[in-house]
Design a protein around this nucleic acid. Sequence first.
DNA 1: GTGCTTGCAAACGTTTTGCAGACTC
DNA 2: GAGTCTGCAAAACGTTTGCAAGCAC
Lengths: 136, 136
Amino acid sequence: MRASGGRATASRRVLLEVLFSSNDHRSVEDLAAAVQARAPEVHLSTVYRNLEDLERLGVIVHTHLGHGPATYQLARDAHSHLVCERCGRRFEAPEELFVGLAREASERYGFTIDPRHFAILGRCADCPPDVPGDGA
Amino acid sequence: MRASGGRATASRRVLLEVLFSSNDHRSVEDLAAAVQARAPEVHLSTVYRNLEDLERLGVIVHTHLGHGPATYQLARDAHSHLVCERCGRRFEAPEELFVGLAREASERYGFTIDPRHFAILGRCADCPPDVPGDGA
DNA sequence: GTGCTTGCAAACGTTTTGCAGACTC
DNA sequence: GAGTCTGCAAAACGTTTGCAAGCAC
């Protein structure tokens, strides 16, 4: 399956097992810890390299949910996110929320949006908006 | 004007001059270089600190246009962006592109989007979509 | 003089890279 | 055996912080 050009090594097998057995997005550090639970000698930089390869093959994608580390998920499960910039709460945003934006971007600029790569930041119902000058 | 709590120092005055005399978004490194052209002893970390203060006062905002450094702009000029993830080309996206998304996010999740903080990534008309496996 | 502000250097967290050895094919 | 993949260490990147001296007030 992933012999499409590369080699079937232990670190890759375990990484794929971890990826397929978890449904939410996970940071590289998370993934590395999970991999190392089964194969302790696998190095963080190897996880980075394998994630990069898997992304190139189209198996996974990475997403930025705000400041902080990127998260990875299976490409077939990819979706968009709303992330509260105050408390970090996340909402999964179905594709249909973006149809209007996608149409306008395409018509006006010939631009094809990929709303899954970067989250939409904002404020959830529990977090008040910023009041300028209130920064203490 | 900006004596709202702080002190009027040379580094701040020059930084504000630079900010008000440029209309596009600028990285911290850019800004620091421009400041240092007039006041060579100003340190990069001072620019970071002053930008942080100005943002807290509501004078400026920062935006992430993709991977790479944040960009700063005057708060009154803030707007959203579409950024091509291949070539980096940027489009300014007027607020009205987001009304549908804003309404849906609010109705469904009580979420108030801030589309200016993070750009919407995607592909411009000149850049083909990714073909998985074509990563070389 | 008080205490905010600065330069500097050093740390930070995340990600990338150079290298020699190990492994898959 | 050829060439890919790995561990490790170190660097890169953007950003933050601790500290003592410096300046605005």
